[in-house]
Amino acid sequence: MTTELFPVPYGVAPHDPLLSLPKCSLHDHLDGGLRPQTIVELADEIGHDLPAADADGLRAWFQESCDSGDLVRYLAPFEHTTAVMQTSGGLQRVAREWVLDQVADGVVYAEARWAPEQHTADGLTLDETVEAVQAGLDDGIAAAALEGKTIMARQIVTAMRHADRSEEIARLALRHRDNGVAGFDIAGAEAGFPPSRHQAAFDLLHRENFPVTIHAGEAAGPESIWEALQLCHAQRIGHGVRLLEDSEISDADPKLGRLSAWVLDQQVPLELCPSSNLQTGAATSIADHPINWLKSRGFNITVNPDNRLMSGTSMTREMRRLVDEAGWDTDDLMWVSVNALESSFLDFDSRLGLLDDIVLPGYERVS
């Protein structure tokens, strides 16, 4: 069993000064961030065949498989991570390690996004899956505290957009809103499965004053973002990288479309995931990623890893790429970190406490 409590994130230099910056991660899939050695060990326990026999080979296979330029193909390797997350023990271990890996990455607040309906193949009920994940998150937070580390973590319960269980999953989220579930999402193949397909679930959550973020504007265009915001009451947009397709972008005379202008004026938070977007074909390079133009215009952008295993990334690596490949500086990183915390589904008093006690002082020490 893996024994290192806080392993340095993959692809990050141990002494990178960005590693110690306090971060807030809003878009990080639980089943996309497993430790490769954990997958190997859990797969061996249940007799699940993997495409590689050891952790290093498995990590390389995941990243190569996800470098497809297509969202549907990017999602296919998740069959192996979800396969080892079908028991309470497996879910609890994965969630615990997910928290510890956040701590190692300098993250002080994180939302674990995952779909309970994908974890009942071995007989767990939906409620049991949520309880197992929460137990793992709590274990990770407690283990970090024993080492003098502060982190807060919440669940984002997700329904699969190609299925017909969104209202059932919405009710599941509401049942556990006082036990760690902070929000609701839909995920999966975006094209052909618009947010409005799940209108009943979103209307229910809206009536119950429950936070919503929706994957939109990644594999589908601005119309997906419009539905998420105007029909389905989303408070945040997952990805949103294709938002600018409704605008005329030029250095001389940029003209925002109606949707982009509304998102800017309302300061709708955008959960941008630069490295992941390169893999799915939603962007061509970090230097040319829409996040840079959005930042220059004052959109409410946040930086996120999406799937740390599949993209070989972390919050620190995303920040390092933006610094090295797009010319960002510490002030930019502080701005998106504050944006993320203020846009989180954490209660106001806790947000304010993290901001005043940890996030702002952490950036002031390096400024």
Score class of each variant (00 low, 15 high):
S260K: 08
A170G: 05
D332V: 02
A43L: 06
R317H: 03
C24F: 07
A191M: 12
P17D: 14
F345Q: 02
L58W: 03
G188H: 09
Q235N: 11
R317I: 05
H206Q: 09
S260Q: 08
S68A: 13
G257V: 05
P254E: 09
F62R: 12
L204P: 00
G123S: 05
A53E: 15
A132M: 10
H215C: 09
Q86N: 12
A52D: 05
T150Q: 13
E128C: 02
E325R: 10
Q86T: 12
M160G: 01
V303Q: 00
C273A: 10
R207L: 04
S20I: 11
H215Y: 08
L355Y: 06
G33W: 01
I358H: 07
H15F: 11
Q63L: 13
T213C: 04
S65R: 13
I214Y: 01
V72H: 12
L352F: 11
S296R: 15
A135G: 14
Q279T: 07
D127T: 08
L309D: 02
E168T: 07
G257P: 14
A132H: 01
I141L: 10
L124I: 04
T316C: 14
N307T: 13
C66Q: 08
L30R: 12
F78T: 11
A163D: 13
Q279W: 13
D203G: 00
L256A: 01
E45D: 12
R165T: 15
G148N: 12
D306G: 01
A216W: 09
G192K: 10
R365K: 13
S247A: 14
R93H: 14
L278T: 06
L341N: 04
A182Y: 05
G140L: 10
T302R: 04
G57S: 09
W328M: 10
D324E: 15
A326L: 02
V12R: 03
T302Y: 01
T81D: 01
G47Q: 08
I214P: 06
H15C: 11
S196H: 13
P274A: 10
A145I: 12
I249E: 07
L278K: 10
V359Y: 03
P195N: 02
D347M: 12
H233A: 07
L75D: 08
I291L: 14
T82H: 08
Q86D: 07
A121N: 13
A112I: 06
T38Y: 02
D331A: 14
G148M: 07
R365A: 15
A283W: 00
T125M: 05
G140W: 09
A282W: 01
R96I: 10
N179W: 09
I291W: 02
L244S: 05
A216I: 03
T284C: 07
T82R: 14
Q279A: 14
R113K: 05
R96H: 14
E364P: 05
S68Y: 06
A132T: 00
A13N: 15
S20T: 15
V157C: 08
N292M: 06
A153P: 04
A216N: 02
L272Q: 01
K295R: 15
G89K: 02
